[in-house]
Amino acid sequence: MTSILIAVGIVAGIGLLIGLILSVASIIMAVPKDEKAEKILEALPGANCGACGYSGCSGYAAALAKGKAEPGLCAPGGSSCTKAVSEILGVETGAVEPKVAVVKCRGSLEHTSYRAEYSGIMSCAAAMKIGGGLTACTYGCMGLGDCEAVCPYDAIHVSNGVACVDGGKCRACTLCVKTCPRGIIEIVPKKEMALNRCSNRDKGGVTRKLCDVGCIGCKKCEKACEAGAVTVKDFCAKVDPSLCTNCGKCVEACPQQCITYFK
């Protein structure tokens, strides 16, 4: 009986000793936690998407708390999140303009074609490595869904050979932008405007053979635009969202229907 008691005593005694040392150590060597950073972290959406340019929400929160970062970099959180963060920091900021991702290609299967049959790994990045992709157009969407796989919000889907963003679900986290090996996904302001939905920079004649809805760089849109928002560079039109008045003249002028209304 006594041996059991001694055994219990030894274990309990050493356990107690370790517990004491640990609790004393944790008090003496406590690392002051940044309360501000923790509050900010709670206000952030916690998607860890990296759209702000930091390693994750905790990284952004730490940078915010130290005053090294501006509030409003969080695209998924939107203006409500920016407001909450600004309140914690005690600074005023303007509202964040809502943004959305857009795939700058409308080359679905009825408009364009594949130049080869592809039976490799079903990923755009893999297909890119074999002769630069499987579509006839070397700028267009390959429709293998790398963006779809990476999207944390289920906002982008491939249908009929081309990816399309669901504006209602998209939070402009830029993950798809970074993933797309052809770099044809762009973040644009979420407002009513005209947008060239083609990324092809081939000469007009080449583009016309490849795709029915490809930008041929004819400059009709540039001439039609009264606000000076459309510029054609490298045989591809670009609409400046900040100048676009959504008048629709470029959309009417476009012979290829690649400039469309966007909202």
Binding site: V11, G19, I21, L22, A25
Partner: peptide
């Protein structure tokens, strides 16, 4: 086990 677990915790704090 007790000692190692406690020790690791202590090392972590330090």
């Amino acid at each position: 086990i007790l000692v190692i677990a406690g020790l690791v915790q202590l090392v972590e704090i330090v």
